[in-house]
Design a protein around this nucleic acid. Sequence first.
DNA 1: TATGAATGAGAATTCATTCAT
DNA 2: CATGAATGAATTCTCATTCAT
Lengths: 196, 196, 196, 196
Amino acid sequence: MKKELTDRQKEILNATVKLIGEGGIQALTIKNLSHNIGVTESAIYRHFMSRTEILETLLDTIKKNITNSYAKRAQSDKIAFERLKDIVTYQFDSFSSNPSYAIVILSDGLYQNEPVLRERIFSIMEFVKMIFIQIIDDGKQSGEFRDDISSNQLAFVIMGSVRLMINQWSLSGFNFDLRIQGAELLKTITTLINNN
Amino acid sequence: MKKELTDRQKEILNATVKLIGEGGIQALTIKNLSHNIGVTESAIYRHFMSRTEILETLLDTIKKNITNSYAKRAQSDKIAFERLKDIVTYQFDSFSSNPSYAIVILSDGLYQNEPVLRERIFSIMEFVKMIFIQIIDDGKQSGEFRDDISSNQLAFVIMGSVRLMINQWSLSGFNFDLRIQGAELLKTITTLINNN
Amino acid sequence: MKKELTDRQKEILNATVKLIGEGGIQALTIKNLSHNIGVTESAIYRHFMSRTEILETLLDTIKKNITNSYAKRAQSDKIAFERLKDIVTYQFDSFSSNPSYAIVILSDGLYQNEPVLRERIFSIMEFVKMIFIQIIDDGKQSGEFRDDISSNQLAFVIMGSVRLMINQWSLSGFNFDLRIQGAELLKTITTLINNN
Amino acid sequence: MKKELTDRQKEILNATVKLIGEGGIQALTIKNLSHNIGVTESAIYRHFMSRTEILETLLDTIKKNITNSYAKRAQSDKIAFERLKDIVTYQFDSFSSNPSYAIVILSDGLYQNEPVLRERIFSIMEFVKMIFIQIIDDGKQSGEFRDDISSNQLAFVIMGSVRLMINQWSLSGFNFDLRIQGAELLKTITTLINNN
DNA sequence: TATGAATGAGAATTCATTCAT
DNA sequence: CATGAATGAATTCTCATTCAT
């Protein structure tokens, strides 16, 4: 389904990431994109069928990254508590290095008229949720995590607060250290979820 | 500072809310607006100086609503626990009746180029946070809430999960009952924050 | 033909002059005008039939001023040489105190589509030319001025250089002293036109 | 710095000149321009970034023309008197064949809000002045021109009267022969400037 | 006299996209 | 693969003017 990306496609995707990082999704115009790469606008259409397809592919890339990285951390043989910490920490690290990814993921409101994109975002969030639920389930069984709240709900609270943190970081123009604030939030989360 | 709105302005604001509810902020064009009201585009400019001013005024209206409603609930003489419940419940009720408000508030990413609007959103969020912190502080003193996490962090977790709930509801096209899901989330939140 | 102006009309004309002085003829919009006076836009139309009529009336006012002032100075019983000096000096003095008049007079290019205005400007220039010619004729007869160039041509040269001076002053944003530069130009003119 | 113009750009510039010639600068709208060429409005923007850039380029073209033509005539090895005659004659000839150039140059008042354009006009006028001053200086040294008035002032008088002539021609709707009237003015100028 | 509301005609741009070469 | 040219649909906003009250 997901074809291999050509070099040019990767180049376009990189420029996409750069542009979004600098000026939000609104800065992602075919014109900006082509100028950034040094080709004409029509050249872009040799490599992607439409602007939407570019975002689609970008979201697929992000999804693949997330899928791999999260799954790896989720499946390590550390205790659930450590795995949770690893993943949340990774989330902050990862967005910290790729602010554009944060923007793309957070801009869901913008995809209102583009079901293809909305579905992508949705699927990413579903995946992340599933990962969290798994870990939480494990942690409950091992007695690490509290048992009085459904894993689904706990996952929801975690994702919501992580997301808000990233959101505020993005709104602030990325001008605080996401990893530091994120670490603090992580402490809060683990305290909340701990069994006693 | 905030002048009384004329009837026409209210009408425009209503149409704004309607349009955003139907098609997102991107659907809020002067043309759509004027057609919706049944006047010409230029007529709009007799009542608002610019499209941005319309959104600005809408955000001001929302802020006034929120300020009043939240403050009232925060200052009641119920115990902190009840006040927290009241406010969160009110949040879900309120967005449930005004889906557009959710969209407007959640679309912060869209205001990247419009500092006036971003500032509005920011100020609303600051206010809400302050309200939560107050209540949590009270609840800590009365022994209702746990004391091992800073009020700031707790407020953050609450806001994050509430926000995510609203976000998902919006993304779903408003096709689940926000009040029901919200009530469940509220239960989770209170369980998490309870002392013991 | 020229009716007496009402107080309101004078007020509008004053605002017109002010606006043009500040931002050129393009700043003369009915909106600016009405805001400046403190009435609504439609109120303007109680006093003038159209924007063009305002400019028309302004030009008439200017013309009346010029007619009176120049005629008075032209008909004094000083020698031609002195009368010429008086008038040119008066021109610079007068525009110096009313920069807007300079703008209105110099903006002839803008009236391309408004014959009524063009005609006004034309008639003012004709009048001024006539005055100059008269004085020059007198000066020739009295032997003050050179006789080898037609009065018409001399008038033309004088008017052209005076006009260019005013033009440069206007373009500079009125930031040099028109009277000083004008005095110097006047010296040049009199030297050129003198007999011997 | 000045790039070569493409054919389309030249075509647009020609249409610009034509439109201005017919209806003044106000007739220069993107719509008129595109209709005149037979393309859509947006097509214009592939060749020029903005309406201002079109005028800017036109002024640059005019400047280049003037620079070359005047410089060539100024540097010939004729006597100063002849060179002066050549240049003034050329001015009238040149505007006579390109009435729009006259309009563009004379419309300085219109560029109040566009510093880029004003600067262009200014620089052209400075150049012309410099040329005149050089010739006049030469003519003074050779004893051809009068020595009792500064070259700067003489240049000013010449430019002012030439400019007024062109202005009146433009205002008249180009309905007299600029070359004939210009020739007469030139005679006046030379008589005025001659040594004795 | 004045207001408030509205109009209609434009104006300059922007953007994703198409197509012949 | 890439370019250059063009399109058409939008978009925000401006301006002089009209008209009922």
